[in-house]
C-alpha cells in the first residue's frame, strides 16, 4: 500500500478547473518530485493535499485511508500527517525563530513547552539555524527564513513533507544551504513530495519524478528515465529546454 496515493484528483479556482485528474503515489521514505512548466498546477496539487484548495473530484489516501476534506476533523488529521513549506517564506513576522517553530506544537497540540523547545533546537540544528533562534524573520536572509520554515513544518512531526519551490525565491548562493537541509532530511528517511526547478537536484534526491503539464500528469518514472529518455513529446520538449538551460 502506498504511503500517499493521489487518485484522479480534480481541482478548481472558482469556475476555472486547473487540475484535470491527477494521479501518482508516494511510498514511505521516498522522495517524489513534481516538475513541469509554469502554470501546470504543481502548487495546486500540494495545496489540495493540505486542504487549502478543495478537491472537486477524486480522492487522496494516506496509508489507505481516504481523506474527507469536508470534515473538519479529517482535515485536521490530514494536516497532522502532511506539512507544507511554501515558495514565499511565510514565517510569522512577529515572532522570533524559536517561537515560530514552537507555536503550533504548544498551542495547537498543547504539548509541554520545554520539551517542544528542546526538539525545536534540534530541528534548528538540523537545518543549520540554531545560532539564530532568537532572531526575527526580518533579520534573516531568504535562505535562512526558508530553513526555519522547514524546521517549523517538521516540528509537528509530519509523515510527509511537501516543499513548494522552496529555493526559487532565493539568490543562487543561498540555494545550496536550503538544498543541503533537504538532502539531510532525505538521508534520514523523511518522505517528501517536492516541487522544484532545480533539475540537477531533483535528479539527485528523487526516486520518482512526476512530469505535469496543463493540469495533467504526462509521465511518471525514475529521474534518469524521465530526464534522459522522456516518452512524450511534451516532456522531451520541456526537458530539452530546461536541461540545456
Amino acid at each position: 500500500m502506498p504511503h500517499l496515493a493521489v487518485n484522479d484528483v480534480y481541482a478548481k479556482y472558482g469556475a476555472l478547473e486547473v487540475l484535470h485528474g491527477i494521479a501518482f503515489e508516494v511510498d514511505r521514505g521516498e522522495v517524489v518530485s513534481l516538475v513541469g512548466p509554469s502554470g501546470s498546477g504543481k502548487s495546486t496539487v500540494l495545496r489540495t493535499l493540505v486542504g487549502l484548495t478543495p478537491v472537486s473530484r477524486g480522492s487522496v489516501e494516506v496509508d489507505g485511508t481516504s481523506i474527507d476534506y469536508r470534515s473538519g476533523r479529517a482535515l485536521k488529521a490530514a494536516r497532522d500527517r502532511m506539512a507544507i513549506v511554501f515558495q514565499q517564506y511565510n514565517l510569522f513576522q512577529n515572532m522570533n525563530v524559536l517561537r515560530n517553530v514552537t507555536l503550533a506544537p504548544t498551542k495547537v497540540k498543547g504539548r509541554n513547552r520545554r520539551e517542544v523547545e528542546e526538539e525545536a533546537m534540534e530541528l534548528l540544528a538540523l537545518v543549520g539555524m540554531s545560532d539564530k533562534a532568537g532572531a526575527y524573520p526580518d533579520e534573516l536572509s531568504g535562505g535562512q527564513q526558508q530553513r526555519v520554515a522547514i524546521a517549523r513544518a517538521l516540528a509537528l512531526k509530519p509523515d510527509i513533507l511537501l516543499l513548494d519551490e522552496v529555493t526559487s525565491a532565493l539568490d543562487p548562493e543561498l540555494v545550496n544551504e536550503v538544498l543541503d537541509a533537504i538532502r539531510r532530511l532525505a538521508r534520514e528517511g523523511m518522505t517528501m513530495l517536492l516541487v522544484s526547478h532545480e533539475m540537477a537536484f531533483v535528479r539527485e534526491v528523487s526516486s520518482k519524478v512526476v512530469f505535469m503539464d496543463k493540469g495533467r500528469v504526462v509521465e511518471t518514472g525514475a529521474p534518469a528515465r524521465i530526464f534522459d529518455a522522456p516518452e512524450s513529446d511534451r516532456a522531451r520538449d520541456f526537458f530539452g529546454k530546461v536541461l540545456r538551460g
Binding site: 493540505v50 494536516r79 506539512a83 511565510n90 510569522f92 513576522q93 503550533a104 498551542k107 495547537v108 520554515a149
Partner: peptide
Amino acid sequence: TEMEAGETLGMSPVQKIRY
C-alpha cells in the same frame, strides 16, 4: 501566506487572530 501557514499548522480561527 501567513494566514495559510497558520491554517496548515492546524490553528483554529481564534488562534489565527490571536497569534
